[in-house]
Computed example of a mutant assay.
Amino acid sequence: MTPPQVRRVSRTYTAAGAAVVVAALFAVGATVATANGGDADGGSAASREPALYSADAGFARDMAVHHQQAVEMSFIVRDRTKDEAVRSLAYDIANTQANQRGMLLGWLDLWGLPKVVADEPPMSWMGSTDGHGTSGHEMSGQDMSGHDMAGHDMSGHDMGGATTKPGALMPGMATKEELERLGSAEGRDAEVLYLQLMTDHHKGGVAMAQGCASQCTTPAERKLAEGMVAAQRSELTLMADMLKQRGAAPRG
């Protein structure tokens, strides 16, 4: 007979998997709608495409970078443990976020916008009040290294309601040192560190996606962001259970 705890985690994992599927379906529909010149609700396309520093474009650029690290961490842990539950979760995260990243970058291409803007501080779009305008670019006064224009260190400061820790580019992202630790860990140690790092990563990702859901003006992109929130919240519940099974807990 299957123990109650195992059944509970299994149900949670199933729910998380379903949320991932929903997010992927949102993404596919959103991309097709945008490519066809309409929104995901079947309406007409916006009269103006997002501008360079808009929330729509900023979210697409930042979340593409954020997702890339999640994919990287998932591939690392796949080779550091033989635990099927962790490997399966890592595969789902890598597959989903790689697909979503491609869609975000595809939108930037469709809008005729660059994938990297040298003078755009990470997360500056979260201060945007105009989805087609210049967002918080002029007000932020920060450069891409996380410093303001006077050279002051801005790491660890709150940006749009989400905190970026020292040494990380955006909320929830791991530092270079943390990635190196993950790459050298094995077995249970690798599993626990991955689950902790990915929990932090998802919390940052949820905050960013909520920002787009409330600020982005492209209906398809808003729906994708809403799907990200639902899927990552389900995975946060799952990862908390998996950490508990291993005698650990999320950090902070």
Rank of each mutant, 00 (worst) to 15 (best):
S47A: 12
R11M: 15
M123E: 06
V32Q: 11
G112D: 05
A240N: 06
T175V: 03
A30K: 01
T163R: 09
R80Y: 11
N95M: 08
T199V: 07
D148K: 14
I76L: 11
T237W: 01
V6W: 05
A174M: 13
G156S: 07
Y13S: 15
W107R: 06
M170L: 08
G146M: 12
V116W: 05
P4E: 09
P114C: 02
D62C: 11
T31E: 05
G161C: 14
R11T: 15
A55Y: 05
E186H: 12
C212T: 09
T96K: 07
M103N: 06
S214P: 02
R233F: 01
M1A: 13
R233C: 08
A57G: 00
D39I: 03
A185E: 14
Q142N: 14
A213W: 03
M73N: 09
A220R: 01
D241A: 14
M154C: 04
R87C: 10
Y91R: 12
A249R: 13
M149G: 11
A19P: 03
S155K: 10
V22E: 06
S128P: 03
P171T: 03
Q232V: 08
A118N: 07
T163V: 13
G42I: 02
P114F: 00
G112Y: 04
T217R: 03
M103P: 00
Y53S: 02
Q142F: 08
D41S: 13
H66G: 15
G252E: 09
G156I: 09
A33G: 08
M63P: 03
A46Q: 11
G106H: 04
Y13N: 14
G131Q: 09
L105N: 07
E186A: 13
G156Q: 15
A45K: 09
M144P: 05
W125H: 02
